[in-house]
Design a protein around this nucleic acid. Sequence first.
DNA 1: CTAATATGCAACTAAATGGTTGCATATTAA
DNA 2: TTAATATGCAACCATTTAGTTGCATATTAG
Lengths: 123, 123
Amino acid sequence: MIPPNARTAQLSRELNDAEVDRIFRALADATRRDIVRRTLGAEASISQLAERYEMSFAAVQKHVTVLEAADLVERIPRGRERIIRGNPDTIRRAQQLLGHFEQIWRGRIERLDALLCADPPTS
Amino acid sequence: MIPPNARTAQLSRELNDAEVDRIFRALADATRRDIVRRTLGAEASISQLAERYEMSFAAVQKHVTVLEAADLVERIPRGRERIIRGNPDTIRRAQQLLGHFEQIWRGRIERLDALLCADPPTS
DNA sequence: CTAATATGCAACTAAATGGTTGCATATTAA
DNA sequence: TTAATATGCAACCATTTAGTTGCATATTAG
């Protein structure tokens, strides 16, 4: 009973460790975060992106490759250029993941509270 | 008019690029994410953490150091051991940051919608 | 067609990362 | 006091990363 296009549709699939590694690794660089922000706000070609940063075109190209591997951006061929578009889905996944972390912490606090109310220390 | 303990209180200060780099870099490793989860759920000494992973004590110790530098965990001396406690604040900061990314995307969609409603294509 | 533009990719380098082992130190237990 | 436990830290190593330059290819403009 696996949905027919479970792999392609990506309807909120759980991310595996390697995928999460790539996402956070990709976000751990200020230039790449900037590229994600720009391309979430508006599409841009690699050349247009490269104009903004004090590094070679090839370096920016590599950053885009890292972001694409993490599915944080899409690279869409248009004539001789490649349009880069930020992918809000992957951002949401990462956010959700951090939400789970928060939940774990919340669970601990609840347990501590319950303990304090129900069972005063025996000392 | 800077609040007296602006640096120590950390009342939702904005994170700078280097800090964000460290946070995401620290989260880009499955072992470290696991350590954060465990120590958000319950405190643990470094030895206790090290028992869980198939690597040397020193390796786990290094992972903890990386997490501490990112302020994702605290290291609290207790007798001969160091108690590690996950820091939910930093997780929240990271989550918020990703929230800003989502907002940027939302803004773009709003602009596109406004354009479509107000101004049918001239072609 | 020719020139200019946009991209892809390989090879190289310096620095950072993630692991190891070995040893020193501090604390607790017997 | 002595032994066991918990940690800190340095030195080393293999791999990855982030940048570079140079060159090849594809597309568009004149």
